[in-house]
Design a protein around this nucleic acid. Structure first.
Length: 101
DNA sequence: TGCTTGACTTACG
DNA sequence: CCGTAAGCCAAGC
């Protein structure tokens, strides 16, 4: 768990556009490591980035932050599934532009 | 060194 | 769709 890794994760999270989200597994595939590591980084150093734009694989917000995340989702008009508890990943999932040609 | 833990996933029934 | 079980990666004790 080095600073470079932490920086990569936070940087990527900070790059997620409003109204869009990324799953822990998505971030893990981008920066390396596993989803749990990404979760660990977020829990320790994610307080100053748009953490609510990082959701679980099923579209539910991070454990322990469901309520606060929903407020932000409503404010950003994030596409939600019927029921409003989970993000509609099909619509809101964001792919970093770093894939370049 | 070995076991437990955690902002997680995926596979199954 | 829901709950359970197993897999995973690294850190903490």
């Amino acid at each position: 768990m080095d600073d470079a890794y932490i920086g990569d994760v936070l940087e990527l999270v900070a790059a997620i556009p409003p109204g869009r989200v990324m799953a822990y597994s998505d971030i893990a595939r981008e920066v390396g490591g596993g989803p749990r590591q990404v979760g660990s980084v977020m829990s320790h150093w994610g307080s100053d980035v748009p953490w609510w734009r990082v959701v679980r694989a099923d579209g539910r917000p991070a454990t322990g932050h469901e309520e606060r995340a929903l407020v932000h989702f409503a404010k950003e008009r994030t596409p939600m599934r019927p029921g409003g508890e989970r993000v509609d990943l099909r619509e809101a999932r964001w792919e970093p532009p770093s894939i370049r040609s």
